[in-house]
Design a binder for these strands. Structure first.
Length: 803
RNA sequence: GCCGGUGUGGUGGAAUAGGCAGACACAAGGGACUUAAAAUCCCUCGGACUAAACAUCCGUACCGGUUCAAGUCCGGUCACCGGCACCA
């Protein structure tokens, strides 16, 4: 029989589907295992070969866990709200709901052809009202706990698309899609107070098993810094509050800088003799895009405030105040004390404006550059701080400022609150009513889901209003509180909303009373293993940790963290080593591979392609090697014979391979697990025969990677009722993983002179004397003094000699 | 600029915990089978020296160090990739 994947693969997929093989049980005595992949956005392009990489990886883990007796939950769904669908819908005059439905159909068919063991009975879709009912419910809880608020905000507005863009959609200051200018528009926006969780989002990373680089990226993004707030007296009478992490350098503060947006400028307007100049600078800064203000121009600019100055509280010196756009209104207090001797930016500014530079930490040359090293410096020119280390000086000065009532310890974060509104149609309606009397009133829970109305035109408007704003019938409503005429919120939620809690819904996807039942939460608890892309580290991964912690605080979920373990896959690149994209013309469609080589070959190749965590280029010729391996496995049917193991050495090879494959799967080293099986099949072929026992073990080991062909061979060779039905993941015997005789390398001065075959239990003396009996070793030692003899058990001997 | 990662044959990549560099594949070359091709099977496959083999030497981006022993550890340099980007 020739291997025919086109016949085998649909056959087994049908059997699995009919028997419901992958349905997770809700109440099982078995230990649970919850594996999760990032649910896909069903785009119009369909799947490309990058999608199956993470799916196959966790499918391999899930299938292995089932063979080990776990009750496995491995679900999938659709993250289907979002701009590409909406834009496609506008362009082609098809309602986004229809577009979504078609795209999901296509994705589903493609994914099913891969034989991934998803529990399709738990499929979810973020655009389903029964689903977004709970997205809205969570928003209302956030609102009621003061964590959702509305605020005037500058938004990105594309002048050509006439629509609002998310920050991610603005690339180098222009619209990602059309390349047109992006300007700022001020709009009232819904915000989520993620900053309230900043500390816990950092500290609780200690509770989870994430790759270090993920933890680090989140920590850097949240950007916690410990410092102090200090109040400076000014000649205007007001106290100017600044934030600093280097309170120790206070004696070196020779001027102050405020952000051009600082409210004191307005307050001091009548005291400023150069108000025109100040105003001109303010206007110039306001005109600059974010891009110009940060990336383009790091040359320091600024204007000195004539008429108001500040007093350095430690030496009563009067120092000038500047405004400059290198100080941001959004961080700290919007004002700083400038210490040019020990801060690079202040140093540049001081040089440009010819301001005095005082050295207060010894160790560098402050005339040449700012000395910023905190670890080695000693305080100088700093009165009562002189002679202290930077760390000690910080503590002493903060204690001093606290006692005088002009300063205190303060922690700051780079993390900003989450802009949560979008002026687009294809998203969850924000369930809030605006009432002139009562303000923002939540839609009553029993009215959820607040459905997205069917509109004729969902094109974005010129005014920056959501397309929903034109739906007067839907917008005009009555206030749930006072019953008077009121208006619905017309902004929708961002794409990140539905994905911030979807893993919870899989636990109990059809529940209409709650996100999931308490029993479901208790049993499934949290995700055991979550695999996803690095690009979501500071977006989805952070957002969902925030929502989860909130749900924990209000008693909905029982765990502090949503995901116990996180791994990350590398991208699959095009043949040319570039990122796969339609415009580069290097996209590979998995359908073609499944059709030509089969799903088992595709799966195996995607796992064999290289280090799972690193990017790897697609190679059409390498796929053939995987196909060949599968055919070699399939053809073992014809080598079948009775017995346990052909030879004792082969038995040992099996034990070693069982150990390696199991270990490698758990450590996401799929490529070497497959290499080990390839090596084992080479051994089997060299014997020319395979026993039933050998073949069945091989089939189970390979099953998580290539589930169809392994079941087929199992059935064809009458090995039993089926791998899924009855097989257990094989155990290995540690004793049988060790060879009786081993090869030991004999070195002289680190150079290999001989290879010794000797019993694994041989003593050092035995190995050494055997080594010394080797011709070449004898020659090398002759006439030399032996300085040292090193023996590494089971590996090598090294004899160090000198003339 | 700051933070993180990577650098190994013609290619993708292996190499617990400092202990035989190049597993497993791909590509290439040669051979067997075949009328022929495909498929399959077998052999060779980092470099220098060699007709070939043996032997020897060199070789994990570059320079230096620690060690009996370095792809692996330490210091420095370069290149590429990712994240952040005036966060005081």
């Amino acid at each position: 029989m020739k291997y025919n994947h086109r016949q085998i693969e649909p056959k087994w997929q049908k059997i699995w589907e009919e028997k419901g093989c992958f349905h997770a049980e809700d109440n099982s005595d078995k230990e649970k295992f919850y594996a999760l992949i990032e649910f896909p956005y069903p785009s119009g392009q369909g799947l490309h070969v990058g999608h199956p990489r993470p799916y196959t990886a966790l499918d391999t883990v899930s299938r292995k866990r089932r063979l080990q007796g776990y009750n496995v939950l491995y679900p999938i769904g659709w993250d289907a709200f979002g701009l590409p669908t909406e834009n496609y819908a506008i362009k082609n005059h098809i309602h986004p709901e229809i577009v979504t439905k078609n795209n999901v159909e296509r994705f589903k068919k493609q994914i099913r052809s891969l034989g991934i063991s998803f529990d399709w009975s738990r499929e979810i879709n973020t655009t389903d009202p029964d689903y977004y009912k709970w997205t809205q419910w969570i928003f209302l809880q956030l609102f009621q706990h003061g964590l959702a608020y509305k605020k005037e905000m500058a938004v990105n507005w594309c002048t050509s698309c006439k629509c609002v863009l998310a920050n991610e959609e603005v690339v180098n200051g222009v619209c990602e899609r059309c390349g047109s200018e992006v300007v700022h528009k001020t709009k009232s926006q819904w915000m989520l107070k993620i900053t309230a969780y900043a500390d816990r989002l950092i500290d609780d990373l200690d509770l989870v098993d994430y790759p270090e680089r993920v933890k680090l990226q989140q920590k850097n993004w949240i950007g916690r810094s410990y410092g102090a707030e200090v109040e400076f007296d000014t000649t205007a009478g007001d106290k100017l509050k600044i934030y600093t992490t280097r309170a120790d350098t206070l004696f070196g503060a020779t001027y102050m800088v405020m952000s051009p947006e600082h409210p004191f400028i307005e307050k001091w307007a009548d005291k400023l003799s150069n108000l025109d100049e100040v105003r001109a600078y303010q206007a110039e800064s306001a005109k600059k895009s974010d891009f110009e203000r940060t990336e383009m121009n790091k040359d320091k600019t600024g204007v000195k405030l004539e008429g108001v100055s500040a007093i350095n509280p430690v030496n009563d010196t009067e120092i000038p105040i500047f405004i400059s756009d290198y100080v941001l209104i959004s961080y700290g207090t919007g004002a700083i004390m400038a210490v040019p001797g020990h801060d690079t930016r202040d140093w540049e500014f001081a040089k440009k404006f010819d301001l005095p530079i005082i050295e207060v930490v010894k160790g560098g040359d402050v005339e040449k550059e700012a000395f910023t090293d905190c670890a080695t410096g000693i305080m100088v020119n700093s009165g009562f701080l002189d002679g202290l280390s930077v760390e000690d000086a910080k503590e002493k000065i903060i204690a001093f400022l606290t006692e005088k009532g002009i300063g205190e310890k303060k922690t700051n974060f780079k993390l900003r609150d989450w802009v949560f509104s979008r002026q687009r149609y294809w998203g969850e309606p924000i369930p809030i009513v605006h009432c002139d009397c009562c303000g923002y009133v939540p839609v009553p829970e029993e009215e959820l889901p607040l459905r997205l109305p069917m509109v004729e035109s969902y094109e974005p408007t010129d005014t920056g209003e959501s397309p929903l704003a034109n739906m007067t019938k839907w917008v005009e409503t009555t206030c749930p509180k006072c019953g008077k005429k009121a208006y619905r919120e017309t902004d929708t939620m961002p794409q990140w909303a539905g994905s911030s809690w979807y893993y919870l819904r899989y636990m109990d996807p059809h529940n209409d009373k709650a996100i999931a039942s308490d029993e479901a939460f208790k049993y499934w608890e949290s995700v055991d293993w979550y695999n996803g892309g690095m690009e979501h580290t500071t977006l989805h991964l952070l957002y969902s940790r925030f929502w989860h912690k909130f749900l924990y605080d209000i008693g909905v979920v029982p765990t502090k963290e949503p995901y116990k373990k996180r791994t990350s896959h590398g991208m699959i690149l095009g043949e040319n080593g570039e990122k796969m994209s339609k415009s580069r013309g290097n996209v590979v469609n998995p359908d073609d591979i499944v059709n030509e080589y089969g799903a088992d070959t595709l799966r195996l190749y995607e796992m064999f392609i290289g280090d799972f965590e690193k990017a790897a280029p697609w190679s059409p010729s390498s796929i053939r090697g995987c196909r060949k391996f599968i055919e070699r496995f399939y053809n073992m049917q014809e080598m079948l014979c009775d017995g346990d193991f052909i030879r004792k050495e082969v038995e040992k090879d099996f034990h070693k391979t069982i150990k390696k494959v199991g270990f490698d799967i758990e450590n996401i080293k799929f490529n070497t697990a497959i290499a080990a099986m390839m090596a084992l099949i080479n051994v089997i072929y060299s014997t020319g025969k395979v026993t039933k026992k050998e073949l069945s073990i091989f089939a189970i080991l390979l099953n998580p990677f290539a589930p169809h062909v392994t079941e087929e061979v199992w059935e064809a060779c009458a090995l039993g009722d089926g791998i899924l039905a009855e097989a257990k993941w094989p155990e290995y015997d540690e004793a049988k993983c060790v060879d009786d005789t081993i090869e030991i390398v004999a070195q002289i001065n680190g150079r290999i002179k001989a290879k010794l075959v000797i019993s694994k239990d041989a003593s050092q003396d035995e190995v050494l004397s055997l080594a010394k009996s080797e011709q070449k070793v004898m020659e090398a030692i002759r006439g030399m003094n032996v300085i040292k003899e090193i023996y590494v058990k089971g590996k090598l001997v090294n004899i160090v000699v000198k003339p």
